[in-house]
Design a protein around this nucleic acid. Structure first.
Lengths: 313, 313
DNA sequence: GTGGTTCCGTCAATAAACTAGACGCGTTGC
DNA sequence: GCAACGCGTCTAGTTTATTGACGGAACCAC
């Protein structure tokens, strides 16, 4: 019956009950003021919400007059939030990395936490917007790329068709008019975007993007047998290997991130815990796809069908 | 005057206006049904919300009867969302990495996007919960660590006091009763947690965590002059170097992530674009801090003041 | 101890937000 | 040309939330 009620709850009320659940689960406590302030409701309404929560999950909380707060009981069971750690940790990382404002989360006191990494230049919203519109409506754009030399960067014409993320950076997978092939352009190196217009090139010709291959990862045999087993467990391998389906164009990033592109033996095995078993296969497949794209693009004819403006992809 | 109104909006209404803003900005279009479904309101109320949005930002949208949707106009200016790219990209990455459900975001159609990385075992919510409670209330826990050998892992007693994130993994910075020093424990290798009890060790003695040092990063001189300039720009260096304040205990992760812990010349310069200029200083500082912690811990007396249960840190 | 403060809870009256059902209007697709 | 769909709007009625007032429990400073 309680489950029945749950469906009838209005969106706003449900969010507030989730908030109570969230705070109890992760922080063990909350008080009425936090609820009222967080959602801009009166304290009376907050009381009513708490009463409702209690009626639906009586054993979850009790009021501690000394702490002036509601506290989680020992046999607490989350009632409204799917108890996903990921949401919690994601938000924590996002706040620590300044991607998100603390007020937009449901945290009160953040646990002491630190995120390792190098913060990078932010992406300009207008540029991302232009890229997204281009992807959706199959447009090409003129862009100026961040030039370090101070000299005026020549404008390039690119037609983005997908986004990719690696090592904290976002890339726009794009056709390049100048080179007549497909390449990656780092979003936050774009300095200026202008002159969007329909693009005749079919993104399906980007075979390096479209085709995937299984990277076959195994523990570095230079590690002790015990460490190898640990690595196998760490990366959830079965039969001593892990197959990772990867787009050909992205295999480079994954290889780079895990030092799979370094000759075996060159690095200390602890710095190269994984070995790519089918490296030549991957590299050949990638080169072949690249060649196929080039030939298809050179051959033309370029595709003619155009989606209507602002239509869904 | 409009700004005045904005403050009076109720939380739920404001969220819906933000939703309209978000969709218009990032996807260029939305319709009434999306609003009604997303927030569980009636179509009448959705119409009312749209009318209100239009009254507050008349030039932002127009209805396209052919598309059966509201579309963004050329001179659109976001009115309710701070136009932060980060929120957009963060959610995109989160959804792509399965950290977040699409329904919890405001996306309609996701742009084609891919996140490079190896998915890892999920962290058990109960374990994270126990660790967080331990951090807040200064407890020690018995944990069983994931053992690859199949043999029963001996329980260890740890007292976590902070979280750290690196390369997709979360670590609990903890005092170890067995070793009587401070170490990192990977959250998703914890198999079982039990027997929490107050811990007499003061986390302030973890000098490797408390002390920070500036890592001084410079472009790898083995790169061409032009590439060096590009790297300097890419990492926002001033005077050819970037100072990155880092906790001593985390310097290892940062060094590992950017191959700063590899001898110069061993790797192709493209795989080692950054060089750590003060590596020996960092390593000495770290070793010194570690030694200080050990001595302080060995010396005792262990700290006596205890925060009350469930009190804020 | 005593007053002052700050939490909480509740009652009653009022205002705002929202829903249900019904109707008309324009566009699209068969 | 007709059904289907999405939008806008009207009325009446319900739910949700606010304002204002009052009282209880715990804590702090004096």
């Amino acid at each position: 019956m309680a489950d029945d009620n749950e469906q009838h709850l209005r969106w706003g009320v449900r969010r507030r009950l989730e908030f109570i659940d969230f705070r109890l689960f992760w922080e063990g406590r909350f008080n009425r003021k936090a609820l009222a302030d967080g959602f801009g409701i009166s304290s009376q309404q907050a009381s009513a919400d708490i009463a409702q929560y209690e009626s639906m999950a009586p054993d979850n909380l009790s009021y501690d007059a000394a702490l002036k707060a509601y506290v989680r009981t020992a046999n607490f069971k989350p009632r409204f939030i799917g108890q996903s750690t990921d949401r919690f940790l994601l938000q924590l990382a996002a706040i620590e990395s300044d991607w998100m404002r603390k007020e937009d989360s449901w945290f009160d006191a953040l646990p002491p936490a630190e995120v390792v990494g190098l913060s990078s230049r932010k992406t300009d919203p207008g540029h991302l917007l232009a890229v997204l519109d281009a992807i959706r409506n199959r447009l090409e754009l003129k862009v100026e790329y961040h030039s370090m030399t101070g000299s005026a960067a020549p404008a390039r014409t690119i037609a983005p068709h997908a986004l990719a993320h690696s090592k904290g950076r976002w890339y726009a997978r794009s056709w390049s008019r100048e080179h007549n092939d497909f390449r990656d352009y780092s979003l936050n190196r774009i300095q200026r975007v202008f002159d969007p217009r329909p693009c005749p090139v079919d993104p399906k010709l980007d075979f390096e993007w479209a085709h995937t291959i299984n990277l076959i990862l195994v523990p570095n045999p230079a590690l002790t047998e015990e460490r190898q087993k640990a690595v196998a467990g760490e990366y959830e391998m079965t039969n001593g290997e892990r197959k990772v389906p990867t787009r050909l164009s992205l295999s480079f990033y994954l290889m780079s991130e895990f030092n799979l592109d370094v000759e075996e033996g060159k690095l200390a095995p602890e710095k190269q815990q994984l070995i790519l078993n089918n490296r030549t296969e991957v590299e050949q497949a990638r080169a072949a796809a690249r060649q196929m794209s080039k030939e298809a693009l050179a051959r033309g004819p370029r595709v003619t069908t155009q989606p209507s403006p602002l239509a869904r992809p």
